[in-house]
Design a protein around this nucleic acid. Sequence first.
DNA 1: GGAAATAAATGAACGTCATTCATTTATGGG
DNA 2: CCCATAAATGAATGACGTTCATTTATTTCC
Lengths: 226, 226
Amino acid sequence: MAMAPQARRAGRPRSAVLGRARITAAARRIIEARGYPALTMSALARSLGVSPSALYNHAASKQQLLQWIQEDVMAGVDSSGFGRLPLDDALRLWATSYRDVFARHAPLVPVIAVLPVAGSPRTLRMYEDVAAGFLGAGWAEEDVAAAIIATESFIFGSALDATAPLDIFDAGEHAARFPAFSGAVARQRASGMPSAEAAFGLGLEALIAGLMTRGPGGPAASRSSS
Amino acid sequence: MAMAPQARRAGRPRSAVLGRARITAAARRIIEARGYPALTMSALARSLGVSPSALYNHAASKQQLLQWIQEDVMAGVDSSGFGRLPLDDALRLWATSYRDVFARHAPLVPVIAVLPVAGSPRTLRMYEDVAAGFLGAGWAEEDVAAAIIATESFIFGSALDATAPLDIFDAGEHAARFPAFSGAVARQRASGMPSAEAAFGLGLEALIAGLMTRGPGGPAASRSSS
DNA sequence: GGAAATAAATGAACGTCATTCATTTATGGG
DNA sequence: CCCATAAATGAATGACGTTCATTTATTTCC
């Protein structure tokens, strides 16, 4: 029943103080300054000089507000490489930017991972670019969706991982009982690179390498044009 | 303040009614029967025939309760293949059981992805098995942690994806504007397999294949790329 | 064997949230 | 001028996690 505040035929009230764009911008300002826990409907309303209930004339729920933020944040994902660069390079660019964006917005991950895509045109546009990239590289149509979703799953998981404390994998006092793992973690740490960065880099290269073997001529794509 | 009369149900023999094991078991019963949203401290207390505040004599917070559940649930992850099967088979077994467990406990994912590992012996034991598996297969120690974390990130992302509605990737009315993606999704659906299953299978095989090229004889860690 | 210490449970608060609703305010079209 | 209408108000609601002073049962110590 939510009416878009766009139908300006009948009486117009006071000048538009709120509206989706302003609300989303204010929310992003709060997130940037004080993080997601600080994003409450009260704080948001206060930052707009308005009462909390006023927000509900524009957003149906906080969930919807989060969807607006997601759509907004999605602009930072770079899918411009598909159709322009070799598929593996385009995937690297896309996945890296995608992970970076959602590492800064990790609380959105559990929300959007489960959200119908139809509500987010920008997300659909991105998927379209990626799908066209796979198809253009000669992939079998039946594998494309799975390849995209699999890569996205890796990205989401990596974004969550990137928000973990740096010492999350320290066994602490139990280290002696788990020598192989503790040794591996210590060795990784000695490299100076945060484990989340190393893991994302290594995993992404492995995933891309593995995917490339399935491209045209690969196992599942039994019919190739040349 | 209020003087309670004596012979109430309030004052009963205080043998160990609660305790970590019983609380965890009751919580899992609620989750199984009615899902995570139903797991409130009140509901949990009620199911134990106790008042909500009583729980706080045993668990410091709901967060801690969730950690107990995680530790308990972790028993369903099968890391028995490492050191017994070829590394790729052991990884398949591990990753599949790991994902299946957390697909049924998706709300735990954002919690544990960020939780220090030191508090969960069972998780540490699992990591130890996996690390020993990689090392036993001849992997360079400095790559092992990254390989484990990367695989786990893929698992967590896939577990979240597995809880999404089946039609999450339907473009709906916008389908015509995104033909490549919509076509790929339609084709995937025609296969009859849920997209989350197809994506996990394809992604896992790609990831494992990619990782295997980095093992002994592959591009050694100390040299080459990145 | 009795007193004190300890552990466990109670129930009534609290504070924080998201959300609802009846009411008021401002605006512009007929 | 009037009234339909979008927008904003502020008080209230209902979950929820959590705290606290108090009560009671069990354990420990002399």
